[in-house]
Amino acid sequence: MNHAYKQILAMVLLLAIGLLAPQAIAKQQSVEQRMEVPTTIIVSLENMRGEVEIVGTDDNLAKVSGRLDEYATGLTFERDGNNLTIRVDMPKRGNFSGQQGSALRVELPRRAELHVTGVSSDFTVYNFSSQVRVNTVSGDIRAESLEGQLRLSTVSGDVQSRKLAGVIALKSVSGDVVDHASTASSASYTSTSGDVEVSTQAQEVTAESVSGDVEMELGAVMSLQIKSVSGDVSAQLQLLEQGRIEANSVSGNVELAFVGALDATLSADVSGGGTIINKLNDAQARESEWGVGANLETKLGNGAGHIELSTMSGDIIVANK
């Protein structure tokens, strides 16, 4: 009885929204909507332009408030079972050259699973603990206090995050990727022309860049993989027993600074004009027979871990912190 009543009420509400929608074309319509949802709801959120702040709360409520894009035709706020759709509806075609994108604040249960997409929309996401995926093209992504499976990706915007935990993947093509104070178990950072700047306690780390520089302050690492074309790579870390490091670059420099005891076999290889500087022990790099390139093989401590570094024409520098 109670359930049926709720359903009718929901339908009436939806109808009312439907009837109101045509008038929503007016510039920058204000919205203020809420709905009770399961705490583990799966949320799909879409906003083309503007700014959206998404906040996890301890309530079992979904709330949307703020102003819609000046071109928006309405807001879809619909629940179907365990799925909730929040979408700023836009005309199919159009030249959206005006300045007024959406400015929204969305509150959701902390354990909700988020799938967020935008075009030039910026997103700020904080306080979630299950799964967060954000995809935008030219927008920035800011994230704080998230835990779980996190994938934040933008094409030309920046990704900035703090206090992330879980399994994280941050990616920008031309923007910077900056991640601080993360306690992730595994982290992957990708940038093309932007820089990567990271301080994380993750045990498994991968970082990739084409022309951007990669700078990492790491904790105790079991596995580290770095690839770069022309960007310089530097990392400070402690290598765990039997840990593994692989870093390859084409013309960028690779610089590693080790904290604490280091037990590993080190192999460093420069193919072209670069040099190898070893400050870890007395082992010297061997010049190649043809005079171009150099190679260093040495055992550090008990040699349990593996470190393989290679560049074509960059320098390789290994040292103790």
Binding site: E46, M48, T117, G118, V119, S120, N135, T136, V137, S138, V155, S156, V173, S174, T192, E208, V210, K227, V229, N248, V250
Partner: peptide, 23 residues
């Protein structure tokens, strides 16, 4: 990796030039 990177970048060029294809 370079091969793969090149393909990825081509895709990102498309996304950047035609952002509306994203949503």
């Amino acid at each position: 990796w370079l091969y793969q990177k090149e393909l990825e970048l081509l895709e990102s060029q498309f996304k950047e030039t035609n952002p509306l294809q994203q949503v």
